[in-house]
Design a protein around this nucleic acid. Structure first.
Lengths: 224, 224
DNA sequence: CTGCCTTGCATTGTCAACAATCTTGCGCTG
DNA sequence: CAGCGCAAGATTGTTGACAATGCAAGGCAG
């Protein structure tokens, strides 16, 4: 579908949401500069509204403001990525713990099992792309099951720098097996209502993933 | 000093910083409505700049935007406060862990001991106000010692709703002893370079504090 | 007296124009 | 040919004016 049709009149929040989506989807690359005028035209609004959306997203940590240069999608150095990885570790661990603490409905339990099954199928089929997609869906599902929107929000943010980075990760086919073994432990712990076990398993799992990040080449960190 | 002298010309960031300070200091109460025009006049700038400052602070979680009504200092429901408390628990736990993992300099170790000593002095003197101040300084020091700015940023955010709430907390003189006992365990663990012990102690400590929040009366949650 | 409508005021929402600033490419000089 | 201004273009920074919205006070009907 062509995306160049002038958008409907949106509020600042709507524009912010649209831009947030583009950043999270990787549509806008890290370090990419955003031009007020272009977006104003695209959305069919004045520059002021776009500016306000920019300021909201800077406050949320998605954009970087440079005086007299405007905004760019926030970049992260290797050090920052490692720091955020540690934060992600405890936050995702918390989400798993909370999911295990709650009395899940039958539907929720089924959703979790289904997500696990889809990852298993992708693993067996050796479909790395599908595994990547299902992996992300699985982690987001656990956030949802935690019922803690603040934890979710922060996890989303510390996951941003991984958007582009995870490609080389998928190349390592061997790690899929290891990764999914972690998933099965987490799934079992949540379904069994074992918070401590769920948190420990999730933390270990995320930490494993972070180890890959530490070995990435420098090129990954330059925002074009 | 009288505060009614027209302020110097400030950037949006400067205005945001000023407002953030007023919110953090309790100068602006929870739920208080802020008028663009008044602040524009006070700071001697156009409304646009004030609006942009508002949007930044909304993104940071300090303000709440209501369509066609402007902004008010963000209120948090009891449920949100409890949710954020759990996030704070693991994040402060992480900060303590990281502080214990790092090889602290002599100066840093001294700072930590000094902060602990000041809390001890306030406890002995029975000075609840001083203890509250030193308590906050202590937690912030540990954030700094962690060396993880992202953890720090998130901790600051989940601490926002506690600004007003901590007053009744201080009334419970008995809890000061219990609280400071927790501090001593944390301090010792960090100085001993014991990450696991430091994290566990901090999590327990923060969880204790959160228990107070859960028992607060409903009035605390209504923005005037 | 009570409830609803209306009218006026306070405030926010939006834009378009102008000023300030930065970048870029050109030409001049040594 | 390299380096240094310098001017033109592009982009952001800021404001004031006008439109739209919501709220409160007062009047009117029942």
């Amino acid at each position: 579908m062509a995306d160049d049709m002038p958008k409907q009149d949106l509020s600042s929040e709507g524009i912010a949401a649209a831009l947030r989506g583009r950043i999270l989807s990787g549509d806008y690359g890290l370090g990419q500069r955003l031009i007020e005028m272009d977006l104003a035209e695209e959305f069919g609004v004045g520059r002021g509204r776009v500016r306000e959306a920019f300021r909201m997203l800077t406050g949320e940590g998605y954009l970087e403001f440079v005086a007299n240069r405007g905004v760019l999608v926030r970049r992260y150095s290797r050090v920052e990525l490692i720091e955020m990885g540690r934060v992600r570790e405890v936050l995702e661990g918390l989400a798993a713990r909370l999911a295990a603490e709650r009395a899940l409905t039958v539907v929720q339990r089924h959703d979790l099992e289904a997500a696990q099954a889809r990852m298993d199928a992708a693993e067996v089929a050796g479909d790395l792309d599908a595994f990547g997609v299902e992996n992300r869906a699985y982690h987001r599902l656990i956030e949802d099951l935690s019922g803690n929107v603040h934890a979710s929000e922060f996890i989303t943010r510390v996951r941003i720098p991984l958007i582009r980075v995870q490609m080389p990760w998928e190349e390592v086919a061997e790690s899929v097996g290891r990764s999914n073994r972690g998933h099965r432990v987490i799934t079992a712990a949540i379904l069994a209502g074992a918070p401590e076990a769920a948190e420990v398993a999730m933390r270990t799992h995320v930490r494993d993933g972070n180890a890959h990040v530490a070995r990435l080449p420098d090129e990954v960190f330059e925002g074009r």
